[in-house]
Write a protein that binds this DNA or RNA. Structure first.
Lengths: 227, 227
DNA sequence: CATTGTGAAGCGTTTCACAGCC
DNA sequence: GGCTGTGAAACGCTTCACAATG
């Protein structure tokens, strides 16, 4: 019942599993029962061999000549990603971004209910965002302990980000999603993933600029969406 | 004056250049004139050899025995990333996220002023967010043309994301930052980067779960922040 | 003599190509 | 016949280690 995966799953694969999961879930909702690696690859925007190799790390859950059974694969990926139970999150920072994240219904629906939002700013405390009341940052340890939170979201200005991370770690958090454009230092054993919006734009800027530098002839065709 | 880079810059390097740039800019603001690859690596949370290799793609801008001149390197990275001029952006979707992004002062400051926000929802049109008035989605082509916008941000619900991308492409956009949890199809020549918040949480979930499965002994020490 | 710049080795990821199986 | 599962080749990125040099 509890088959442990055959091999350690490569990081690159872990990052793609949630993509497959979303596609499979949608296909399942549409009544699709089986999906081939070819079709799944197309929907995920990747190569079919990659899909097969990725899924092979979970075990041999496909059927030759048929494809993968959607509902079973959904179950297996969820189990592998630890999504068979909820992971409450706590958000530090009730500014623009913290509010948007808290109000974002998608999180709760996908198994990441917002257990709390905290801020230092007295004026923000007590207001309710997305059904959650903003509390004082000093309440962080209690929120984490009471709701068994292990994931924290840093949505504070850059200058406050390291302090926010330190507080999360002290409160017992072991995974951090960091929206501040800052490299956080955390103890070994704490996982950090960062989302840096300006950085993404700067990367796009690079490719735009390269395009401009090339002075390529713009093909007048191909305006509609294609692969 | 316009040294073209010696080689094509690897994608992995392009992604790190903005990180170095931010660190160098901050160091410059603090009056630091030179920085070694060792120090820069420490601040960026990477290996020193990687820093040197990354910077070597821009040319030989360091001085042996001394390090890199901060202001000169800032200039070179900016030029390489195309950040020596502004890139106005247009946001599709004036919901929670679109509003937060538009209100986020960091974009304008970093050279990505919001040229416009559009939505389909009549009730949202006309309201002002972060100094920008929300306009109807049909005005998209005019905004793009008038302000020479080449970067579009998709901040609509998943079901509307592909249509939003199609509209951006038709309006002449060639780079898209996609916040919707959907794989967008775009014509060749259009660059897409995605930011998927639930996906990030799911990746964290995987590592949390692995930790829980290991039943590792938590070292009672090391609560403070360290590298 | 501290520090860069870079060949070369090492490593992880992607892709190929096909044997194995339903 | 169609499709998975997987060794092996190819590729790209990271790290090492050291010669070059201000």
């Amino acid at each position: 019942m509890v088959d442990r995966p055959r091999r350690r799953i490569p990081e690159a694969t872990v990052i793609r599993l949630p993509v497959y999961l979303r596609i499979l879930t949608e296909a399942g909702d549409d009544g699709v029962e089986h999906l081939s690696s070819d079709r799944l690859a197309e929907l995920a925007g990747v190569n079919a061999a990659k899909v097969r190799k990725d899924l092979s790390y979970l075990g041999s859950y496909g059927t030759r000549g048929v494809g993968y059974e959607v509902s079973y694969l959904v179950y297996q990926i969820q189990r592998e990603l630890g999504l068979n139970h909820e992971w409450p999150i706590v958000i530090i920072g009730a500014g623009n971004l913290g509010q948007a994240l808290s109000g974002h219904a998608g999180f709760g629906q996908r198994g990441f209910p917002v257990a709390g939002i905290v801020d230092v700013e007295e004026s923000k405390i007590g207001s309710v965002i997305g059904g959650v009341r903003v509390r004082h940052i000093d309440d962080l340890p209690q929120i984490v302990a009471a709701r068994q939170v292990s994931i924290g979201v840093v949505a504070v200005p850059p200058s406050a980000a390291q302090d926010a991370a330190d507080r999360l770690v002290r409160a017992g958090i072991t995974s951090i999603l960091n929206f501040a454009p800052v490299v956080l230092s955390v103890p070994r054993g704490v996982t950090v993933r960062k989302v840096d919006l300006a950085l993404e734009l700067q990367i796009l800027s690079y490719y735009e600029q390269k395009r401009a530098g090339t002075l390529h002839v713009v093909p007048r065709s191909g305006t509609g969406a294609s692969a």
